[in-house]
Design a protein around this nucleic acid. Structure first.
Lengths: 179, 179, 179, 179
DNA sequence: GATGAATGAGTGTTCATTCAT
DNA sequence: GATGAATGAACACTCATTCAT
């Protein structure tokens, strides 16, 4: 049961290679390219991930998990906006993650997406309690809005970076003090 | 000069079929599927659009033109927000248009995209003069934000529709009168 | 029966266009290109030449006829070598004719090829009578040798032009005076 | 390192099938036909030869190499004519090789063609030293003439075989001893 | 378990030929 | 008769997946 040492290592290498390839070229990159970059045979990729969709899902779940982990470290009240900022930074220049986050991929790391939503939920509720965010938005809403911010940011030229996030944040703030 | 009756009709049918197929399944649908739905042979599609890219571009330019045309009819001051709303309604449930608007398609009906930006420009300036929109955003910024709203909306469940637009609008409003 | 005026003209224009196109690009040139250059529709080409093969055959027969006609004007004794020279000049820089003459085209203007062989026959016999050409070669042999000379010439750089013909002529001369 | 047994065998089978198919039908035969005759899938052909041109080039280079190898075994003085004869025998009834030799293929096994020219060069010089061949012809000239002989031979009926070669040889012989 | 060769359905595109106008 | 749009069978090539070694 221990000889799986290299199997474990191969799995990791495939994930890493896939992550990079997806980020660089999008999910349409051929599996062969990923296998080559990972230094393994094409068959090995399929042993670990029976389907391309499974590999894509794994890469994304992996990433979502990291992001969800990160959320746990941001407990304080304005953690919500900080977190949003981090996610946007993560998604920028990452075609696949961006696609994953904005749901345009058929696949989604179901469980991991849930974890991410949970993380959002916690931070969101805290922010709402502090009166920083409209009370009527849910974690799922924020997820969708995040997707939108990513799309916006990817269209903005470098010198306008952050505007999408800024607008979203402004739009999410409790809007009633406008009186 | 009259025998073009079929040609004209076929071209329209191809465009319609392509529009629907792109909207439903994204631009990766096989041309054969489009040809079949249009009731023509594969070669006919190529006669009208020598390249798949050309067909995609034509469908998108077509749509962008419609949208730009629509902008001309909204002259009054709050036309800007109304227009934004219309664009979002158009892009929702339309994978290809959405992709076109958010620029993730390699191709874009260059001229038509320009027309759309011009339309934005006019409405945006008017809205800014009326103090309804932050003065520091440009038409290009709005274009990017539109892409984001589309992404958001496509992720929202039906009963939350409009939230992405709402947040963006709130975020775009002149934010300083909040004193 | 006279309204065929334009039909006749079209036929001629198609032949001319085909001749040029075949000469320039080889027989794989699309029929559409020929039709366009001839200023007629694709259907018209097929009305006159039901098959591409038929068109190729017609072009070649046409050319062979011209060449055969030319032979008639060369009656004198050393006409044979002069004629060979003319044929080589004609075939050089003419992919299709060259192909036709060297038989690598599936098709051949049967009747016209015969006429050409007949022309050869006459000149050949005269040359043989004058002791200028080996007595054991036939008109068909010469035809094949002509094809070879054309192939050779097309491979020679400009500054070596004529060598293929020269060698063939030397080889065809009555070889016995070598005593 | 051993599992390449199949790969090696398949590569050989593809080359053999291609050689036969090209020889029989010319280089325009569909790859599918070659794949089928080789008993492999279409994809396998592409794995070994990424492009049709590459396959054609490989087949030809293969053949030219064989021919060049053969030249090395003919060292004596009249080797030149013997070699010419062998090349002609090889090219007869081999459309593709013939095309390769006469340069009408866009592709040529560059290195192999060079080897062949070198082989010619050696034999030619020896023959010229012995006074058997005109001193003013170069190896490149002979290459062109070979192409011509092949073209001639392919047009000759079986009972006339060899005439093209015979004429070329006669034409190449030092012509001045006629004194 | 790993390898990478083999598979074969699928893609965009071309083009000789047919046919409605 | 002429037109040129429509056809559809090919073609070279790609790539996720399978399988012999």
């Amino acid at each position: 049961m221990s000889p799986r040492a290299d199997a474990v290592r191969n799995r990791a290498r495939i994930l890493t290679a896939a992550r990079e390839a997806f980020a660089r070229d999008g999910v349409d990159v051929p599996l062969d390219a990923i296998a080559e970059q990972a230094g393994v045979g094409a068959g090995t990729v399929h042993r670990h991930f029976p389907t391309k969709e499974a590999l894509v899902g794994a890469v994304i779940a992996d990433r979502l998990d990291q992001l969800a982990d990160r959320a746990a470290q941001l407990g304080d009240d304005d953690g919500f906006f900080a977190y949003l900022g981090e996610l946007v930074d993560s998604g920028r220049d990452n075609l696949a993650l961006s696609a994953a986050l904005d749901g345009s991929l058929g696949v989604d790391g179901a469980a991991s997406a849930e974890r991410l939503s949970d993380a959002f939920q916690t931070l969101l509720v805290a922010a709402q309690r502090s009166g920083l965010v409209r009370r009527d938005v849910t974690a799922a809403d924020v997820h969708a809005i995040l997707a939108g911010v990513l799309a916006t940011e990817s269209r903005l030229p470098p010198d306008r970076r952050g505007l999408g996030l800024e607008v979203a944040i402004a739009g999410l703030r409790a809007s009633r003090p406008s009186r």
